[in-house]
Write a protein that binds this DNA or RNA. Structure first.
Lengths: 144, 144
DNA sequence: GCTTGACTTCAAGTTGACTTGAGCTTTTAT
DNA sequence: ATAAAAGCTCAAGTCAACTTGAAGTCAAGC
């Protein structure tokens, strides 16, 4: 397949495909003149990348999942990611419930609605930041 | 409360709190000298912001949820966001299942495991990009 | 009364994930 | 045979969400 076909099939712009190739997330298997040639299985790989992105993983993290550094390290990493997703799913679910409730609720302000506040507090229990932000943030110096 | 107390209670650095205030996501209610004073309810608001961020909303989107432009527009927006979250939850769930399966599976490569590929295809059905990326991306010129 | 340390502002820097543009080459349609 | 369309590379630009740094202010403790 040439890059335009991959773009069409995956829904990603060609520039993104070149960028992903440069990052090592996908491979082209040869050239026709200058032009990259891709094999069909790149589509599945791109689907997985999109899925991972939408789940909040960084491209680097997705890359790690593809290239197991050792058999056990990889397994452990995958399970850790799965657990991370679990708490993300919980947060999303309470966010969703909160939004639905807010839409139905006739309190003047969501912050005055006890149901909303309860959802907020429940959700706050498994609080976390986005993975890629968490990783790069240094130890804070604002606390004693 | 002064900014350090808010930082401690919310887990966010003071610089972020100033940044959020500048963006209009939170308000300080007065000053003591130069120093901002916050009322205690800012903590709940920050919890909601963190929750929204972890659910993948941009700060601008979160801001929109706070400031209803009209009573109905707001309600519709909230429900739309809730639906968006629903498909996000589905994607995360299949991603999580895929990861857990991969960790347990002994196929040499996840792409050779039919169970994994099936999960991938199911997840691909409700494919989407991250909201903030989707919003800024122009109409693509790569397709005919 | 002066130092200290927590605060302030404002501008500039950073990071991840792409996109855009310039300038070139190659394929394809006429 | 030639021009348009599609690819290519490589550098630079963009955007959101913060962070960092410099330079100043101010209340509190000694």
């Amino acid at each position: 397949m040439d890059i335009a076909e991959v773009a069409k099939a995956s829904g990603l712009p060609a520039s993104t495909l070149r960028f992903y190739e440069e990052k090592g997330l996908i491979q082209s298997n040869g050239r026709f003149g200058l032009r990259r040639l891709f094999s069909a299985n790149v589509i599945e790989r791109l689907a997985l990348i999109s899925l991972g992105r939408s789940a909040g993983f960084s491209l680097d993290e997705i890359g790690e999942m593809f290239t197991p550094e050792g058999p056990d390290i990889n397994r452990t990493l995958l399970l850790a990611k799965a657990d991370e997703l679990d708490s993300k799913i919980k947060a999303l679910t309470s966010m969703r419930d909160g939004l639905r409730h807010s839409a139905a609720c006739n309190a003047p302000n969501h912050f005055e609605c006890p149901k909303f506040l309860r959802l907020l507090r429940v959700a706050g229990k498994n609080r976390f930041r986005q993975a890629n932000i968490k990783l790069k943030r240094k130890v804070r110096t604002y606390l004693p």
